[in-house]
Measured scan of single mutants.
Amino acid sequence: ASVAVIAAGTQGNIFATSALRSMRFLQILRMVRMDRRGGTWKLLGSVVYAHSKELITAWYIGFLVLIFASFLVYLAEKDANSDFSSYADSLWWGTITLTTIGYGDKTPHTWLGRVLAAGFALLGISFFALPAGILGSGFALKVQEQHRQKHFEKRRMPAANLIQAAWRLYSTDMSRAYLTATWYYYDSILPSFRELALLFEHVQRARNGGLRPLEVRRAPVPDGAPSRYPPVATCHRPGSTSFCPGESSRMGIKDRIRMGSSQRRTGPSKQHLAPPTMPTSPSSEQVGEATSPTKVQKSWSFNDRTRFRASLRLKPRTSAEDAPSEEVAEEKSYQCELTVDDIMPAVKTVIRSIRILKFLVAKRKFKETLRPYDVKDVIEQYSAGHLDMLGRIKSLQTRVDQIVGRGPGDRKAREKGDKGPSDAEVVDEISMMGRVVKVEKQVQSIEHKLDLLLGFYSRCLRSGTSASLGAVQVPLFDPDITSDYHSPVDHEDISVSAQTLSISRSVSTNMD
């Protein structure tokens, strides 16, 4: 405001104040949320940038038409019409005319000016109207692209899951042992070998009828009888010197917790746990005396209480009078009846079946994303299906024409109403129809010849004498029936064969 007042002088105070007050009108834009329509302006900018070359070309040609039209109309009207006294007036008329506004304040009066105005109007309006069409088509394409992008975003994750499931299904095939990355992934998420051994031990116990592997080994086996189970490696608790092959000598807290839970599941009659010990102070733990958990001091820290809870689970003690015997301790020893080589084939089979199920689920979810969402998608899918159906029908028609023997030239002739090819031409065609016709002709010829021969033979049998045999009239074959199959017997006289037959029969009768 200060700059405006200084620039306008003393009389500019009122002007500056009114100008600043008129800017209050811009507050109405906040009512229509114009300040939060950044996406709309961004869309407009992207459309203009995408079609910038077309817009520049249309505007450039339109500007050239405007300059030439205004100049030529000015030359034609400057002497006869006072409205075109300057080139600026003519340029104003050209702008209003070519933009199809047409105020009518300035019009050419001479015939030359009117002809020039009409010609440049028809030429220039087309170029001035091009930017509107370019922007409209650009907006339509952009909206369609955003629509497809939205659908693509919805299909991206199911497609990625389907590709991942397909690759993992491919890589978990037993015949592709060189693909090891997927197996490394499952090695990292699978439970430890100790848990798998416990699982298979329970399965084997159920197969043995509820007997433990130790009891199965204690059962008497006759001499020479084959053992029911192959000899396997035996594993004891981590306190002993022997372990399962492939295990580490260090046992983690999870393994100890699972070991304690498995020992508690063996039965309360074979294992008696004394009350857990509780320390009397955060600094020292008295293991010899058993106290109640309700006497825990409230001033303990979080670490002390955590250690106390761990001691409740991981440090059970047995009383002296209830101490288990050596046999019970041997039964409680952890027996590992299986090795990694025995378990891994079954584990890989389970993983393979899981990968198949996940692949089928991913495939079903991806197919669900291909379903249409709204009416536009339904129409688009219907149009695509219609085009596909037309293509299939056209391909089927082409194959039928190839089989029947109607080529493209014959199809055009039928469409024009011309006469089709004759039967002889159809026979000569190298097509399925021509071959079928040729075979039918040959079969008819053979059938006719057989009928003639059978009739001749029956007449010979009825006559009974050589004289009557020679008097029999043998009809000749019709050459038209034989089609294109020409037998060497067709052109010979059958009477010669009949005479030869009669001579042979007379000779045979004389010999008798």
Score class of each variant (00 low, 15 high):
residue 213 P to R: 07
residue 463 S to Y: 12
residue 173 D to H: 03
residue 247 E to K: 12
residue 292 S to I: 02
residue 413 A to D: 04
residue 246 G to W: 03
residue 228 R to L: 06
residue 185 Y to N: 12
residue 215 E to D: 09
residue 378 V to A: 15
residue 391 G to V: 14
residue 477 F to S: 12
residue 497 S to P: 07
residue 187 D to V: 04
residue 464 G to D: 06
residue 501 L to H: 14
residue 381 Q to H: 01
residue 238 P to L: 07
residue 384 A to S: 10
residue 206 A to G: 10
residue 180 T to A: 10
residue 200 F to C: 00
residue 185 Y to C: 13
residue 227 S to T: 09
residue 187 D to H: 03
residue 189 I to L: 11
residue 234 T to N: 03
residue 375 V to L: 03
residue 416 K to T: 05
residue 296 V to A: 13
residue 174 M to I: 09
residue 404 V to A: 07
residue 343 I to N: 08
residue 281 S to C: 03
residue 468 S to I: 15
residue 361 V to E: 01
residue 276 P to R: 01
residue 263 Q to H: 13
residue 271 Q to E: 11
residue 194 R to G: 10
residue 293 P to R: 05
residue 288 G to S: 12
residue 189 I to N: 07
residue 351 I to L: 09
residue 423 D to A: 13
residue 401 D to Y: 13
residue 451 D to H: 04
residue 193 F to Y: 13
residue 272 H to P: 00
residue 346 A to T: 01
residue 342 D to G: 02
residue 435 R to P: 01
residue 356 I to N: 00
residue 171 S to A: 00
residue 213 P to A: 11
residue 271 Q to L: 10
residue 290 A to V: 06
residue 333 S to N: 04
residue 355 R to K: 03
residue 450 L to V: 04
residue 384 A to P: 11
residue 294 T to N: 14
residue 459 R to H: 07
residue 444 Q to R: 04
residue 458 S to A: 04
residue 354 I to V: 13
residue 219 A to G: 08
residue 387 L to V: 06
residue 508 S to I: 15
residue 305 R to P: 15
residue 202 H to D: 12
residue 281 S to F: 03
residue 213 P to T: 03
residue 299 S to C: 07
residue 327 E to K: 15
residue 359 F to I: 02
residue 458 S to L: 12
residue 363 K to N: 05
residue 462 R to P: 11
residue 368 E to V: 14
residue 236 H to Y: 01
residue 493 D to Y: 07
residue 377 D to N: 08
residue 473 Q to R: 10
residue 311 S to C: 14
residue 361 V to L: 00
residue 296 V to L: 04
residue 426 V to M: 02
residue 198 L to I: 09
residue 364 R to K: 02
residue 209 G to W: 01
residue 290 A to G: 10
residue 287 V to L: 08
residue 239 G to S: 07
residue 433 M to K: 03
residue 414 R to W: 04
residue 474 V to E: 14
residue 207 R to S: 05
residue 491 H to N: 12
residue 362 A to V: 01
residue 316 P to L: 14
residue 436 V to M: 12
residue 481 I to L: 11
residue 256 R to H: 14
residue 378 V to G: 13
residue 377 D to G: 04
residue 474 V to M: 10
residue 219 A to S: 00
residue 207 R to P: 05
residue 502 S to N: 14
residue 247 E to A: 12
residue 192 S to Y: 04
residue 220 P to S: 07
residue 442 Q to H: 13
residue 241 T to P: 01
residue 424 A to V: 09
residue 376 K to R: 13
residue 195 E to V: 12
residue 252 G to D: 06
residue 289 E to D: 07
residue 446 I to M: 01
residue 263 Q to E: 08
residue 243 F to C: 11
residue 454 L to V: 05
residue 283 S to N: 12
residue 498 A to S: 12
residue 439 V to G: 13
residue 445 S to F: 01
residue 512 D to E: 12
residue 282 P to R: 12
residue 325 S to L: 12
residue 288 G to C: 07
residue 245 P to T: 05
residue 249 S to G: 04
residue 227 S to Y: 11
residue 301 S to I: 14
residue 493 D to H: 09
residue 422 S to Y: 08
residue 344 M to K: 08
residue 412 K to Q: 03
residue 442 Q to R: 01
residue 340 V to L: 01
residue 347 V to A: 15
residue 318 T to S: 13
residue 241 T to A: 03
residue 223 D to H: 06
residue 497 S to C: 14
residue 257 I to V: 12
residue 191 P to L: 09
residue 491 H to D: 07
residue 191 P to S: 01
residue 232 V to F: 11
residue 273 L to M: 14
residue 264 R to L: 10
residue 291 T to A: 14
residue 227 S to P: 12
residue 447 E to K: 02
residue 271 Q to H: 15
residue 401 D to V: 11
residue 341 D to H: 04
residue 500 T to S: 12
residue 436 V to E: 08
residue 495 S to P: 04
residue 382 Y to F: 05
residue 475 P to L: 06
residue 365 K to E: 00
residue 276 P to S: 12
residue 297 Q to P: 13
residue 381 Q to R: 13
